[in-house]
């Protein structure tokens, strides 16, 4: 049987063209457009749309608030990411064993990840409330005296509160992915190692870790990127406050763009973030051996 061949061999590309055009329009156009905007002088207070070339980018380097917001972002990432990873791993190991009600427990544990971050943040805002929040209430019971911790206001308490919420919400994600990866480790290999006399750490180091590493690396990458762009939870809890104490890069960009209406400057910030993340991702993908 011979298939009917259209006389024009390139006809298939014409068929694909509308879809590709649409994809480019939706995907690539905004990116390029915002890049162009970042070289202009647009803000919502003025009608000036002339080109400023690298003016906005030069401004970035002089902007102390920007670099502080980057530092805040890195601080949250540097603490939350390893904690989420280790906690998730520990939980995954716990649930690897057969136990009654296992499925139900897993479903319950995964709930935080399903909730929208802004809702979770708002809920925690209420829980942390210094007057009516149950958290202060419980701490008071344990302490035996009235404790009035200003979780979302006091500078040395906001970071613990934010990082706690972040960990609460996203550890289940790590847990679920690592549980799936660990379940796939060949059981007879770990049994052989047990008989060989190896203890937990040796088995983890030489058998489990190499087996789950590709999955774990991707989970770290995904969570790392998410944490770098962290916005909702902080917005709901503190809106970047007190002052600019918990302002992350995303919150700063949002403030510049939609409160100060510095459109071009915000575009420049966005491209700074794109640049940083591209560098980190490329490095991480190479370093983790994922490109192979």
């Amino acid at each position: 049987m011979t298939a009917a061949v259209h006389p024009d061999r390139n006809f298939k590309y014409w068929l694909l063209a509308p879809a590709i055009f649409l994809l480019l329009l939706i995907g690539l156009f905004p990116l390029i457009y915002s890049l162009v905007v970042s070289f202009m002088r647009i803000d919502m207070m003025d009608t000036d749309t002339s080109f400023a070339w690298f003016y906005n980018y030069k401004q970035l380097f002089k902007d102390g608030r920007l670099w502080w917001s980057l530092a805040h972002t890195l601080l949250i990432t540097a603490i939350a990411l390893p904690v989420e990873l280790l906690l998730g791993l520990a939980m995954a190991y716990l649930f690897l064993e057969k136990m009654p009600w296992r499925q139900i427990f897993i479903s319950l544990l995964v709930l935080p990840t399903i909730i929208s971050p802004i809702v979770a943040g708002a809920t925690w805002r209420l829980l942390f409330d210094n007057k009516y929040g149950p958290i202060n209430q419980i701490i008071s019971w344990v302490a035996g005296e009235r404790i009035d911790a200003l979780w979302t206001i006091k500078p040395n308490l906001v970071y613990p509160a934010i990082i706690f919420c972040e960990i609460w919400q996203w550890t289940p994600f790590m847990f679920l992915i690592l549980l799936a990866a660990l379940s796939n480790v060949d059981k007879s290999q770990t049994e052989a190692a047990e008989i060989d006399g190896a203890r937990f750490l040796r088995i983890f180091r030489y058998i489990a870790l190499p087996a789950i590493w590709p999955v774990m690396a991707i989970a770290i990458l995904i969570r790392g990127l998410d944490l770098f762009r962290i916005f909702d939870i902080i917005w709901a809890l503190t809106q970047g406050g007190p002052g600019t104490r918990t302002e992350t890069i995303s919150i700063y960009a949002y403030t510049q763009g939609f409160k100060q209406f510095e459109t071009s400057y915000t575009a420049a910030i966005a491209f700074l973030v794109v640049f940083i993340l591209t560098v980190i991702c490329t490095w991480a993908i190479r370093r983790m051996g994922l490109a192979k």
Binding site: S188, Q189, Y206, P210, A211
Partner: peptide, 8 residues
């Protein structure tokens, strides 16, 4: 039965 060699 399946050898259970350590693959890495």
């Amino acid at each position: 039965q399946n050898y259970a060699l350590y693959p890495y």
